[in-house]
Amino acid sequence: MNWKMSRIVRTVTDFLVVPIVIFGIYLILHGHLTPGGGFQGGAVVASATALLIIAYGTLGRHKKDLSTIEAIGLILFISIALLGIGSTMFYNFLAGTGGMFGGTVEGINSGYINTGGTVTLMNLAVGIEVSAALSLILWMMSKETGIMKPEKKTSKTESKEVEN
């Protein structure tokens, strides 16, 4: 069976995947300045994964990596939320303290990326979690329904069974 699509589709995919992923990362990292945020950026990155799956028919074997990345994102989110439990959960303890994420904004400004405190970090964590989760759902669905090429570790007996 022919798993790849035609050369035209693959070339256009090669040109389109990089801007889509960059736009998703932009949405995640600028979530505290512009419309967008972790969920939206993660969904955009996962749509790039869908494009790759449909065009090439394979993503390699990265299921465990995706599961691990998703769990890491969720744990990061919960632990950032719990770090501020001195006052309340989800307390923004980094805002205005200076340093990498603690810049201050006031009034009408053009937006600085080093502001936001824990909001920026939580955007990053949710973006990692959502992109890995939606990519994993797409990966599993496409592999089970025959869109994606099965892995090579199937032995000869299994392939004979499939042919029968």
Binding site: G31, H32, P35, A95, T104, V105, G116, G117, V119
Partner: peptide
Amino acid sequence: HNQVNNVVT
């Protein structure tokens, strides 16, 4: 309070 421009976030 949050030093964030985007109120929705």
